[in-house]
């Protein structure tokens, strides 16, 4: 069936290349090293930065626990999702893993389905403990066991729920 409007394919002028030049092309490793050094300088603040993200999760969780509702759930999902990305960058990989597990639960459990409060609480407590104990080693056996248990419970919860028509399942977030 013919489409109503023809498809147009065109190459816009490369204004970016014209602006920055760079005849040699490729990754500027000297600049990358400078950036890595600058990140290393900031790394002393990472734990403190992550504490702010953890507080956001704790606050949104508290609001959801009292008021429930899609908006509160979406806010908690945003906080968990942010924490996942931030923790991975700020050198707390296990916090990132637990936050990712919580994001999966919040995002994939159908919107009308009540979240299991104990499982959500367990995730929140887990990230707080991992951060408080400054556990950054992914091989830490206790933390690994905890992460695996949380992952398994989320998987089991999602398997028992009807499939969300929106696979990504985010109540309001984009």
């Amino acid at each position: 069936m013919a489409r109503q409007q023809p498809i147009e394919l065109f190459m816009p002028p490369n204004m970016l290349k014209a602006k920055v030049g760079g005849g040699l092309g490729g990754v500027d490793m000297a600049a990358v090293k400078r950036a890595e050094a600058a990140m290393e300088d900031l790394s002393g603040q990472f734990s403190e930065w992550l504490a702010a993200d953890l507080k956001a999760l704790v606050d949104t969780h508290a609001r959801y626990a009292v008021g429930l509702g899609d908006d509160n759930r979406a806010a908690m999902l945003r906080a968990a999702h942010d924490l996942k990305g931030q923790a991975a960058t700020f050198d707390f990989p296990l916090v990132a893993r637990v936050a990712g597990s919580l994001s999966r639960l919040l995002g994939e459990l159908p919107a009308g389905r009540e979240l299991p409060p104990g499982l959500v609480e367990a995730h929140v407590q887990a990230v707080l403990v991992i951060h408080r104990e400054n556990i950054r080693d992914e091989a830490n056996p206790m933390a690994r066991t905890l992460c695996a248990e949380l992952d398994a419970r989320v998987t089991k919860t999602l398997a028992a729920a009807p499939r969300n028509p929106n696979r990504n399942g985010h109540p309001t977030a984009g």
Partner: peptide
């Protein structure tokens, strides 16, 4: 994420050196 300096540089180089044509449908 996690954000790494080398990845950011690599994506910048990609949009500078390998821009894709645009499509309008």
């Amino acid at each position: 994420k996690p954000v790494a300096a080398k990845t950011v540089m690599s994506r910048l180089v990609s949009v500078i050196e390998h821009p894709r044509p645009f499509v309008r449908t």
